[in-house]
Amino acid sequence: MSASAPASVKDASTPTPPLRRGAPARIRKLAAQGPLFTAAVLVLVLLVLLAVCAPLLAPYEPDAIDLKNSLAGTGPDHWLGTDQSGRDILSRMLYGARTGLLGPLAVVGVSTVLGIAMGVVAAWRGGWVDSLLSRSMDLLFAFPAMLLAILCVAVFGAGLTAPVIAMMIAYTPYVGRLVRSIARQEQTRPYIESYRVQGWSGWSICTRHLIPNITPTVLAQSAINFGYALMELAGLSYLGFGVQAPTADWGVMVSEGQNPLLKDVMLPALAPATAIVIAVVAFGIVGEGLADRVSKRER
């Protein structure tokens, strides 16, 4: 206990849990979030795998027309039946998953990156930079995403690109606003201030400490946004503004499945619609779960 013996005042080396965790521990921790979260993650993983492996898994070419087999029911040849043109629904679903996920991926990826950049710059610089960025985000907010998308289609023509660009623009202010508010809070925390006192530049503090620490919160929101983007893009395709008809896409498939619906054939429309619902719900659950984990970590 004497003052001159630092070793004696050293905190006792008590058994603390292992410092580095392996992959199994991570998976276990993920599962601790609850069975619903785990199931949603599994659904999304499966969805991505199916989309990636579509060419290997699909029993038919997605666009192979077989008019003799129009509206065939489920059976060993066509697990989910065929549509009006006799195309295999399962194959189209698998290929549809690719466009269905690729569009939102681009939207969410770009809007997250742009939003983080705008939000952090606004929060960190403050003053007129903040006002300028905040006002321009407000301006973007004023445009409904759908309207912007239709406008873009009018300019660039129908297809996946135009609505995706429109929605990148429409989603950025959502992320930007969220990032700005959490970054403003985060930058007053002593750990960020201590980096300023140490003499780091604003750039390195933001890129190495501020952004990595707010990213989990932003990613949780992005997962939820992913579901929304998927739904809105499918909606645009359904309306005919997005992916165009022959290409396999869930939105397009729902639209094409309307006619068979009138003849009491459900699957051509029901299958892609169900897929959309499952994907959107799964992204929502994952997003909520991630947000939960973030708030649990904060003490």
Partner: peptide, 11 residues
């Protein structure tokens, strides 16, 4: 700083 729980980068 005062609060040892907030003055270190948690990552």
């Amino acid at each position: 700083f005062q609060d040892p729980y907030l003055s270190l980068d948690p990552r």
